[in-house]
Design a protein around this nucleic acid. Structure first.
Length: 423
RNA sequence: GGAGAGAUGGCAGAGUGGUCGAUUGCGGCAGUCUUGAAAACUGUUGAGUGUAAUAGCUCCGGGGGUUCGAAUCCCUCUCUCUCCGCCA
């Protein structure tokens, strides 16, 4: 959520930034400022009435103490009027504040200066690539075929137990999952991230805090009896740790990591995208989050990119990094890099990580601040990234590291797996 | 699920209708003293809104009510603790 004062002070800058999202928000911004003006005006009127009421109340107290009953009664008459009009003002103020909030919820984050204009995914900019594409002297299989050949993943069983998009991992497939989770967590720990084990359900406040609510409600599983949501990513519980928290400057940056399953309803997806592990309703992911001083956040974003790079390099997977253009960036992000690994068998790129700086967009909602030297609370910057999401990594590992008779496990994973090949 | 108790500033903990945004202690910060440190002493120390700066206004778990006036009384919700029941 943008800050109204920012909009007021840097309107032109913000409008120019938002234009990169290929949508016009100038009307929203005008509405916001107009609503804020009437908010201020109404607030002032209300405050004046309340101030008068407070004053009279004190006088009445004094008069009663002195036994001046008649005078006290007289004063009370005015307070009746005051109460009526302040009640009315309160109601309209509340309405204005609701409208203002609703408007603010509609406006996405302002892309960073470095983000390019673009209409959609086609205009993302490749900024880094690494690795060699494997060459096979046999017909490369897709991961769903390998998975079924070696009994690693049972999609049918998942369909039976739950439904499409909830695969069952078994045997070496299950152990590979566990190995990857541990590998990613240990790497994060080595890089200075504190590990958390988190609830897999969150309440409404948390959903609002990180921006899944109100607008992306349909993408989360909702447990209605208790009004809880299954987390779509560990980012939600991890970042909400700092909701309504004022940190000390010297605590920053805070680095956190956590493994959780992620639940996504993903309504409206279809076709080749959903084959095998490409898109699931439940998947596993290790997330990294940093809570940063605004002056450091872009350096930290680079640091996080390096971390993710390192993971993919250790796994020996060909990948590229894309700088997302304005039109493809998530609602809350100011700057996002996507990591994609190349799937040799499917002959396409698969997104395995998205690493973003949200600047103050989340912290403004979360009310997560830090106190600097001047003693004034200031909003932090929040950043997060997948490090990494498992299913497509598994897909790429199986496909890219396959040989004529099975799959070779990358050296680095073997201590965690306990086996060096499948098949 | 049943019965009872409670929720106050970073923490502890007063406050049961009228200068209470809140006594006090600890912690934090600044200063005095000291070669330096500790101790002691002095001062200072919540957030939001608003303003050029003041002022004003709001906030004592959330919401609602009573009253001229609520941290304090009433209703309701949430959470915590104790006891009972159930349970991995």
């Amino acid at each position: 959520m943008l800050q109204v004062n920012q909009i007021r002070e840097n309107r032109e800058f913000i409008e120019r930034g938002l234009a990169k999202r290929n949508k016009d928000y100038s009307q929203n911004l005008s509405d916001i400022l107009a609503l804020d003006d009437s908010r201020k005006k109404t607030h002032k009127e209300l405050d004046d009435l309340l101030a008068e009421g407070n004053l009279i109340a004190k006088e009445i107290g004094q008069l009663l103490k002195n036994g001046q009953m008649a005078e006290a009664e007289q004063r009370k008459q005015r307070t009746v009027e005051l109460k009526e009009s302040s009640k009315a003002l309160e109601i309209s103020l509340q309405k204005i504040e609701e409208d203002l909030k609703a408007q603010l919820y509609l406006v996405p984050n302002v892309p960073h200066e470095s983000v390019v204009f673009g209409k959609g995914a086609d205009e993302n900019v490749e900024c880094f690539s690494w690795g060699k594409r494997p060459v096979f002297d046999f017909e490369a299989k897709a991961h769903w075929d390998i998975a079924s050949q070696f009994d690693l993943i049972d999609f049918e069983l998942g369909n039976k137990i739950t439904g499409a998009g909830f695969p069952v991992y078994r045997n070496l497939g299950a152990r590979l999952q566990r190995a990857l989770i541990n590998f990613f967590l240990d790497e994060a720990q080595k890089a200075g991230y504190e590990e958390y084990m988190l609830p897999h359900m969150v309440n409404e406040e948390s959903g609002y805090g990180t921006g899944q609510l109100p607008d992306k409600e349909g993408q989360m599983y909702h447990v209605q009896v208790d009004n809880l949501y299954l987390i779509p990513t560990a980012e939600v519980p991890l970042t909400n740790i700092f909701r309504d928290v004022i940190l000390k400057e010297e605590q920053l940056p805070l680095k956190l990591t956590g493994y959780t399953p992620c639940f996504r309803r993903e309504a409206g997806s279809y076709g080749k995208d959903v084959r095998g592990l490409n898109r699931l309703h439940q998947f596993d992911k290790v997330e990294i989050v940093q809570i940063a001083n605004p002056t450091d956040s872009y350096r930290i974003l680079e640091e996080m990119l390096e971390h993710v790079k390192g993971l993919l390099q250790k796994l020996g997977l060909e990948f590229r990094i894309l700088r997302l253009c304005g039109g493809d960036m998530g609602f809350a992000s100011a700057c996002t890099y996507d990591f994609e690994v190349y799937s040799a068998a499917q002959q396409r790129w698969l997104e395995v990580s998205s690493t973003s700086n949200f600047e103050t967009f989340q912290s403004n909602r979360l009310k997560c601040r830090f106190k600097g030297k001047d003693g004034k609370p200031q909003l932090v910057h929040t950043l997060n990234g997948s490090a990494l999401a498992l299913p497509r990594i598994v897909a790429a590992l199986l496909e890219n590291h396959q040989d004529a008779s099975g799959v070779v496990i990358p050296e680095v994973l073997r201590p965690w797996c306990g086996f060096d090949r499948i098949g």
